[in-house]
Structures are given as structure tokens and as C-alpha cells.
Design a protein around this nucleic acid. Sequence first.
DNA 1: TTAATTTCCGAATAACATTAGGTCTTTTTA
DNA 2: TAAAAAGACCTAATGTTATTCGGAAATTAA
Lengths: 226, 226
Amino acid sequence: MKHPKNKKESTKDRIIDAAKMLFADQGYLKTTIADISKQAELSEAALYEYFQGKEDLLLAIPDMWVSELIEDLERQLFGIKGAVNKLRKYLWWYFRRVEESPLDAKIVYFFLKTNANFMQTEVYSNVKVLYAYLLEIFEEGKRTGEMRSHINPSIARNIFIGTMEHIITLWLLRDRKYSLFENLEETFDLLVSAFTTRENDPALPVRTLLAEATQTPSGIKHGNEA
Amino acid sequence: MKHPKNKKESTKDRIIDAAKMLFADQGYLKTTIADISKQAELSEAALYEYFQGKEDLLLAIPDMWVSELIEDLERQLFGIKGAVNKLRKYLWWYFRRVEESPLDAKIVYFFLKTNANFMQTEVYSNVKVLYAYLLEIFEEGKRTGEMRSHINPSIARNIFIGTMEHIITLWLLRDRKYSLFENLEETFDLLVSAFTTRENDPALPVRTLLAEATQTPSGIKHGNEA
DNA sequence: TTAATTTCCGAATAACATTAGGTCTTTTTA
DNA sequence: TAAAAAGACCTAATGTTATTCGGAAATTAA
């Protein structure tokens, strides 16, 4: 059915690109079908051959992006050992994808949830897949002892996702004037220190502290713990 | 100017209440001025005596709510000693306010950021005030030694706010079928364990071991407010 | 080459937000 | 108190936008 004329971008893609740019730039409301079709060099009526309407067009954008993400994620995590390492990879991977596709990200974070029936959409179930990976990671960490045994995976996931989303939202609101990766290392360490057992906490290695403490001149009382 | 006929709700309030309900229920887009004015028992034209337009009306809602929050927050935190206690109060207070005014919260979290010029609005600067309190709390915690000395307050704030917002957003998306306070205790403990020095971590009292081994380092005055 | 199909467009249509212009009521003021 | 001013409200335009209609041009299939 689809015969991609490689010489030029397909019409559908042109529409999507135009819409993506305009939605992200001016917002969904202020962007008119006339704007989009002008940018895509097409009549307004023709646009309706490709999308059922403005809302359908909006939904199509995150739909594609999130699908790509899902496919990529599996490959990215493949072969990585350990829950903390997976968590780290997840974070760096996702931030890179967001930095590479800020328009998609903006549409996802700003215009998707407003849709009222967003919960019933294809995109939402795909987002849940992305989140489910995190749950698995926390469950693995718990199982292997890398993370605290009494941790609640879904709570940990809330904290992790919430933090990610907030950082991204701020970055988008501030017109992405800085790098998303600024302070990321520190943020990750802080998060991990909440989840992991102490031995695995790189930010505050207790073993080392203990060792230091027992060496400090004033501190030696009774080193009854080891 | 204002002569509040106490016998009935003022017209302006009626409009705001109608808009709040309809926006939160159907979304900003699907709600028409006709809907709102019908609900408020008013002609469409009359509505424009009170608000410049649909967008102005939308903005008015969080504007009022956030102003109230700011005024309340100061009183709520007044007299509470210790950064962790303040943090806890902040969280419980805010969640209660959200649970009491879910429609306002929904408008804030779902329809405000989409506004493109949201950054220039009155509401945004007020939201920043709310967030600034958190920064102060983390700085205080750092200063008093209640929290880790190497913590970055703005990173801690990101984690805290991100987590809050994510929990609230989920709750709203799921039609608030459960209590916002479900698992809150556990979530808070997990967060605090990332921020605090070990002695204040009730979940995993590793530091008590250390404290036994050494004396409290550098004369930390831990307010024993737990 | 002809029929079918796809791609596209100009011109309606319809749903809205917003304005204009006016009536009726309440408040002010002289 | 009576006239004037201000306020609250309305019906009926007006203008903007999304969406649909009916058909033309271009492409593909036979």
C-alpha cells in the first residue's frame, strides 16, 4: 500500500512534522489547521485525507514516538547486569531520547494529559509499558538484594518517574536552554541512595565511613560493629 | 464596589464554579462558553462582563487557588522545628489541600502548562513561591546537619516535587478512586532516607551503629523531634 | 487506452468565541 | 426625590476555525 517516494518526504510525514513543530511552539489551541496545512504545503481539506481531525493528528505524534521508544528500550537494556546499572541506563537513555526529540517530548508532557480520554488511548498503554520496565527493575533489585528488601517497587517507581518527569518538564518550560544532563549524576546518586542497601551506595559508602571513623583520633570509642 | 449579596452566590463565583467543574470534567477544549454560561444561569454575553475571555477565565481559577495556598502555607509551617518535620508537614498539608480541591488541582496540573505563556503569568510566579519554601527547608536541613552536607537543595527539591506531582497526577488520572494518602508514609520515609544523614533515617538505622562507634561528628545538634 | 484509485482543492457548512447595541435595574447625587 | 450614572443582563450580529462536500487533476492498474 505504502510506496514511499524517496525523492521527497511523504505527505503524511510532512503534515506530522509541521504539526509537531507548531504544536510544540504555539500550543495545541493556538495552532490552526490552516497553519499546519500551509506549513505542509497542502490544502486544509487534503489534510483530512490523512487524519480524522486535529485531535487525531495530535495523538498520532506521541503515538509514533512512544512506539519507537518501546522498541528501543528493550535493546538498550539487553545484557546489562544489575538493577542499579539498568536503572542508570534507563535514565541516561531516556534523557538522551528526550534531548533528541524535544518536540515529541513537549507534546507528550504538555498536551497529552489534557485530552480527558487519554487513558483510553493507545499511547497510554504504551507509556505503561515503558513504566513497567522500571517496576521490573526494582523488583529485580529487591530480589537480588541489591536494593532494600522492604522497598515497595511501585513507590520507588513513582519517585523515579516523578523526578524524571519533573526535570524534563522544567527543562522544556525553560526552552531547554541548558543540558538535560546537568546534575544528572548527582540526582541519580541521591535517588539510588534511597533505594539501595548501604553497601551498594556509592554516594556514602558506610564501610569506608566506618573505617574512617575508627581511625579518627577523637572517634575511637568502641568499634563493636563491622 | 463589591456588594456581596449574601443571600446567593455572586455571579462571578457562579461562573468560576461552573467553569471549574466543566473544565475539570470535560477538559478546556470541549467545554464551551455556552456550557459554562448555561451552568451558571447566565447569557454568554454576560459572562464577558466578568472575564475577558475563555482563557482569562481558565487562568483565574488556579490564580485564586494558588494565592490561597501561599497564604496558608506560611501559617502551616509556622512554629514547626526541624527540616524533616517541615518537609513532612509540607507534604501532608499539600496533599490535603489537593484532596479538598481536586478540581483546582486538575486544572493546575493538566491545563495550565499547556498555555505556552504560562511562564509569564501571575500563577507561575506564585507556584515558584510555593517551591521556594522547599528550597529553604532543604537549605535549613543542610545547615543544621539534619540532612546530608553534600546535598544539593535544588536537586532535592526536584525529587521531592517531582514525586509529589507524579503521585497527584496519577491520582487525578485515575479519577481519585483511592486516597491520596495511601502509601504516603512509606513514600516519605524513602525520600527522607535519601536526604537525611543516617541518624535520622528510621528505615535503616545504620548510622546508629556508627554513632555508637564514634561520637557525633562535628557537633551536630539533632533536634530530637521525631 | 480506459477504468479505477489516489491525491488534492475551492467552496460550503457548522460550531464556537467574541462584540455590538440595547433594555432593565440599581445606585449615586444634587 | 428625581434625574443621572453605573451595573447587570440580554438578543442578535460578527468573525474565526474545524470539518465536510463535490468534484478535478494526477497516478496507477487493466
